[in-house]
Design a protein around this nucleic acid. Structure first.
Lengths: 189, 189
DNA sequence: TCATGGTGTTGATTATTTTAAACACTCTTG
DNA sequence: CAAGAGTGTTTAAAATAATCAACACCATGA
């Protein structure tokens, strides 16, 4: 006699199975690493039981994967990993091209941006200030960066990292386009 | 007779208590919203039981908070200082050049890396797995990226973003050097 | 002083998870 | 075909989680 535990959209079983298979582990192999029985893993994957947190942690330790990552992973369909150039969301303006990596991802820790500044382009009259941190690397051309009163010109290979609550501004004062890759955490976009 | 469930660094009880108090809820109030008994919440907070995932979900729904957020919750970001340009620490190998942005910063939310892969270079035989998320943009050349069983070749302007606990590997299968900028959160380096 | 209503805790019972061992199935090999 | 090693599944017993109802404590106020 079966009982299917349905906890709404919480499908720990299918989720665990998918993760286990991504690591090419059999139920018995994972059970051995995790210090539980293979039967338990079978029952969990069929959603015939809802594992205790401590059990689930033991199981995930055998993979290994943390609880946070486990519950962060997207259930419905595989999360998008690869983002072709054309699929990067363009959130920039006429003069500044900002391409956001992973715009479709519901949840993430960071914004990653591929930025292009036309000659003379900048991030605006007002200095920017917002929560979190940001950093990046200049790939091509040169950019003038002001942060908290300090101003520098960065060229290819140069990098930056600062607390975003300091007033900051980017300006391309050169004659050629400037290209850089940046990241912010928590996500700005 | 007491038994304290040893959950290593997994302290669901204290964690739940902290969250509940942030929302100014009593055990009974939360229990009512969550559809469980106040006694259960008491036992969980004392780590006298390790709740089943379904129970914990019910409890968190009463707050409301998702499982992922619950297990992710840890800290708050810390303000940092401006990062000078000449201080990219090289942490790579002979074939892979990894330049870390902000290597001196004691505490930060992200690692930002400027990476260069020589033709034929890769991240090693073993697939990489670690906590957190990572993403990046390819700037020059091409790189083969495998994540959780999926493999793609990415060229200039193409990007990626994934949960780092999925097994992953980078390989430059092309004839020219590949350059990319990546970020991970929390910091890998 | 003694209610009243709030808090978190506890013991005994019920319900569920977890184990241990066996079962069924698919391969490969002799 | 039979034996062996691999896979996932199942059942009955043991261990643990969750409930229900009572308990103890601390306020406030009649």
């Amino acid at each position: 006699m079966f009982k299917i535990i349905n906890t709404m959209s919480l499908n720990v079983g299918a989720h665990l199975k998918a993760v286990r298979q991504m690591y090419s582990l059999s139920q018995r192999e994972l059970a051995k690493r995790a210090g539980v029985t293979n039967g338990l893993i079978s029952l969990i994957e069929q959603n015939r039981v809802s594992p205790s947190v401590s059990s689930l942690k033991k199981v995930l330790d055998g993979i290994p994967m943390g609880l946070a990552d486990f519950f962060t992973l997207d259930l419905a369909g595989k999360p998008q990993v690869f983002f072709p150039r054309d699929e990067l969301a363009d959130i920039g303006s006429a003069q500044v091209e900002l391409r956001l990596v992973g715009g479709r991802l519901a949840k993430r820790n960071m914004s990653i941006l591929h930025e292009r500044y036309a000659p003379g382009a900048d991030t605006g009259e007002e200095m920017l200030t917002h929560a979190g941190e940001e950093g990046g690397v200049v790939v091509r051309g040169a950019i003038e960066l002001s942060v908290g009163g300090d101003t520098r010109v960065l060229g290819p290979g140069d990098a930056f990292y600062f607390v975003s609550s300091l007033p900051h501004r980017f300006r391309n004062i050169g004659r050629e386009e400037c290209e850089l890759v940046s990241a912010s955490s928590p996500p700005t976009f």
